[in-house]
Design a protein around this nucleic acid. Structure first.
Length: 485
RNA sequence: GGUGGCGUAGCCAAGUGGUAAGGCCGGAGUCUGCAAAACUCCUAUUCGUCGGUUCGAUUCCGACCGCCACCUCCA
């Protein structure tokens, strides 16, 4: 059983096989940086991140390119109201984009090309299209002649007459065909511009992706991802430009991420119903937001609500509790010892069951992700094992520490692919170390009180520590503590 | 008008031509000095409605109802 991807181009689930054995080239349409990104934008970025992580987990070498649209009408307009330059605005928001996505645990792409740094490449591509008769110049702007590409509409399945019937197509009398779109926009007075053979101007949106994808990944790329709203016209136009220029398929697998909704409607910037990713990150740990965003399959709409985030928070707490309990086995058992854990004569049924549950989780996880990156199902496989582990810990008769250690390693390995466990682990540990001795002392005193059934003192210590976000649990093996938020 | 999608327990959400993963919330227990955590049991003979195909459909087909999106910038 291999990996299958739903290809928007064929509208079918297809067996995935990259152009070059073992290597995957992937392009993801990035943000237009006129503002911070909202959680809806983050969904697409996160799915891209997880597809990449999973492909790597499966052994592929992935090259991911994600563009930054740093010049367009909205940037110009926003910069004007703020009284700063477009460049300044783009730079500030571009920086913010990386801050936000990295807080969410999204790994940077291998290349993050900016439109303004690829003007010559775009001019070259436009010129090529003019030379081929696929574009025409009017008043310093260059338009793509949709009629010159007879496969136009193959991605979105739109027929010319359908488009014309829609009353919402902007009528520009200068264009030969209402469907034609601009690849180069002549600058109006006062607008930022770049020199070109057709006069000063700036690139159109679609040309930048064609040009930068081909520059960094070649004429044919394996996977092209983006939000479903980009399917038309953006991706349709990318195909038209690129394929007419090269005569080769532009992207082999088109992946489109469904919308994040809020109150049943699409979360969108023009809707003004969005929540910035950074706002959400201030309220919830990154893992919680990630868990929420992958709790439905990427091709299905997902509704944002406080309640949903809380559900994810509770679910993740369950996962964390389990892993924290397992962690000590992992720390006590050297990894090498794990290899030979088959055997002993006194091997219990619980132990056997747990071992097989670990294998089951592994294969169910892979099957789920192989089925067009079904993250919701994949998460289910993880929680099934969590349940098994908890039962085994509860009974704990005849379960080898090795088995628990092995469960810990497998679970954390899988969680890494989805990024739902300690993705930004680094700072908390040193803080914990500093507190360690101090809290151990308090726990010792408390244990003394408990031995004398002095519950007042015992509970006081627990309650006061709780106020300091330190939670104590009494178990059979003594008391444990941890930071909570 | 054109195109596409969705409707599964109180909520969120997988899934399959043979009778429903997982999570959350709630209730009752077990454990515990009490908490916390965990465990057990309870919570869909049923998958929007009505028909059809089939030995059998939630899963295939058709109609209908409801919701959403794209066709204009938007992940």
């Amino acid at each position: 059983m291999g990996l299958k991807i739903y290809n928007s181009l064929s509208r079918q689930l297809e067996e995935f096989s990259p152009l070059m054995d073992g290597h995957v080239s992937m392009y993801s349409c990035g943000p237009t940086v006129y503002d911070y990104i909202h959680i809806g934008n983050a969904r697409t970025a996160l799915i891209t991140d997880i597809i990449r992580r999973y492909l790597e987990y499966r052994g592929y070498a992935v090259k991911l390119v994600q563009n930054l649209t740093d010049i367009d009408d909205k940037i110009i307009a926003r910069a004007k109201t703020l009284g700063i330059s477009s460049g300044q605005l783009a730079q500030t928001n571009g920086k913010a984009y990386f801050e936000d996505t990295q807080r969410l645990g999204i790994q940077p792409a291998d290349v993050h090309p900016k439109a303004t740094e690829h003007i010559p490449e775009m001019i070259e591509l436009i010129q090529m299209l003019i030379d081929k008769g696929a574009a025409y110049v009017i008043d310093g702007s260059v338009y793509y002649r949709v009629n010159s590409f007879n496969e136009y509409g193959k991605l979105s399945r739109r027929k010319p007459e359908d488009l014309l019937a829609g009353a919402r197509v902007e009528v520009d009398e200068r264009k030969e065909d209402p469907r034609d779109f601009d690849m180069w926009k002549a600058a109006k007075p006062g607008e930022p511009s770049w020199d070109s053979p057709w006069g000063p101007g700036r690139p159109g949106w679609h040309i930048e992706c064609s040009s930068m994808a081909m520059k960094h990944l070649g004429e044919t790329i394996d996977i092209h991802a983006g939000g479903e709203d980009l399917l038309f016209p953006h991706h349709e136009n990318e195909i038209a430009q690129s394929e007419l220029a090269t005569g080769k398929p532009f992207a082999r697998y088109w992946v489109h991420v469904a919308f994040l909704k809020i109150d049943g409607r699409r979360m969108g910037k023009s809707e003004e119903n969005f929540i910035f990713l950074r706002e959400a990150l201030d309220r919830y740990p990154a893992e919680v937001i990630r868990h929420f965003l992958i709790s439905a399959h990427y091709r299905h709409p997902l509704d944002y609500s406080l309640e949903s985030l809380q559900k994810s928070e509770s679910a993740l707490k369950r996962l964390n509790n389990c892993l924290e309990t397992l962690q000590k086995y992992h720390e006590e058992i050297p990894v090498v010892a794990e290899i030979d854990n088959a055997t002993p004569s006194n091997v219990s049924e619980t132990n056997m069951n747990l071992l097989s549950a670990i294998d089951t989780m592994q294969s169910r996880f892979t099957d789920a992700m192989d089925a067009d990156f079904n993250s919701a199902q994949a998460v289910g496989s993880i929680f099934s094992l969590v349940s098994q582990v908890n039962k085994a810990i509860g009974s704990s008769n005849g379960v080898f520490p090795d088995t628990f250690a092995s469960a810990y390693r497998k679970l954390t390995e899988i969680c890494q692919v989805l990024g739902i466990y300690k993705i930004n682990e680094d700072n908390t540990d040193t803080t914990a170390e500093n507190y360690d001795a101090l809290i151990e002392l308090l726990l010792e005193i408390r244990q003394g009180a408990r031995d004398q059934k002095d519950w007042d003192t015992s509970d006081k210590i627990r309650d006061r520590l709780k106020q300091l976000n330190i939670e104590i649990k009494d178990t059979h093996d003594g008391s444990t503590w941890k930071f909570v938020s």
